[in-house]
Design a protein around this nucleic acid. Sequence first.
RNA 1: AGAGAGGUGGCCGAGUGGUCGAAGGCGCACGCCUGGAAAGUGUGUAUACACCAAAAGUGUAUCGAGGGUUCGAAUCCCUUCCUCUCUGCCA
Length: 423
Amino acid sequence: MLQLSLIRENKEHFIEALKKRNIDAATLLNTIIDLDEKRRGTQTELDNTLAELNKLSKEIGLLFKNGKPNEAQELKEKTTSLKEASKNLGDVLHNTSDALQELLYQIPNIPHESVPKGNSDDDNEQVYREGEIPELKENALPHWKLAKKYDIIDFELGVKVTGAGFPIYKGKGAKLQRALISYFLDKNTAAGYTEVQLPHMVNEASGYGTGQLPDKEGQMYHVTGDDLYLIPTAEVPITNMLRDEIVKKDDFPLKFTGYTPCFRREAGSYGAHVRGLNRLHQFDKVEIVRVEHPDHSYQALDDMVEHVKDILRELQLPFRILRLCGGDLGFTSALTYDFEVFSTAQDRWLEISSISNFETYQANRLKLRFKDEKGKPQLAHTLNGSALALPRILAGILENYQTETGITIPEVLVPYTGFESIN
RNA sequence: AGAGAGGUGGCCGAGUGGUCGAAGGCGCACGCCUGGAAAGUGUGUAUACACCAAAAGUGUAUCGAGGGUUCGAAUCCCUUCCUCUCUGCCA
């Protein structure tokens, strides 16, 4: 959520910046500013009325104490109209604030100045590329065929037990999943991230805190019986640990990592691109989250990018990094780098990590602050990224490491799997 | 899940209708004391919003959350969430 005070001061700048997202926010921002003016005026009026009322109440109290009930009675009558006025003003204030809040929820974050213009993922800017794309034999298979051939992932069985998009990993496939999770967590903790184990469901307030609600209401599984949501990413529980907190400046950087399954309804997805592991309703991911001083958040973003590069380098997977364009940028993000691994057998790039700086956008919703030099609370910056998402990494490994006789396990994973190949 | 008790500031804890944003203690910050530290001592110590160009200041709200009663609510009533104890169930 954008800060109201900043919208007031920089309206034109905000309108201009939001054009990068192909949004014309002028009308919306003007409505917001009008509502805000109304809210403030009402607030002042209400405060004055209540002040008057409080004053009278104190006088009445004193009069009763001093044994002057008649005079007290007179004053009591004077309060009637004030009470009514304050009730009305209170209602107006309430409604105005709610309306204002709702509109504020509709505005996405302001893109960072480096974000390129563009409408779709075609306009994303490649900023880095590394690794050799392996040359595969002519009869190289996509991962879903490999999974079947070596009986390590059973999609049909998942359909039987739950439904499409809930695969069942078997044997060495399951072990490889566990190995990847352990390896990622070890890399992250070695880089100073504190490991946390998290709830896989969150309440409504947490959904709002990180911005999944109300924007992506239909994308989360909603457990209506208890009004909880299955997490679409560990970002939600991790970041919400700090909701309503005022941390010390010296606490920065706050760095957390956590493994969780992620649940996404993926309403509206279909076709070849959702085949196999490419898009699932439940998948595993190891997330990294940082909370930073605003002065250091972009340095932190670079640091996270380097960290993920290092992991992919160790796995020896060919990858590229994209700076997302305005049209492809997530609702709450100011700047996002997507990591993509090349899936040789599918001949396409697969997104395997997304690293974002949200600046104060999430922090404003979360009320996540720190005290500055003067002891004044200021909004912190939040960042997160995947390090890493499992299914597509697995797809990349299966496809790129396939040989005629099996699948070679990347060297760095062998200590975790206990085997060197899948045959 | 049933019965009971309870949720007060960073923490502990007093407060059961009237100058209560809230005693006292701990913690923390700054100062004094000290060669330095401890002890001692003094002062300060929430957040949001509004008014103000801003600081200072003032006002309003906040005692889990949301309603209500009352001139006036931390205190009374209702709803809801959470915690604890006992019983039940259970990996």
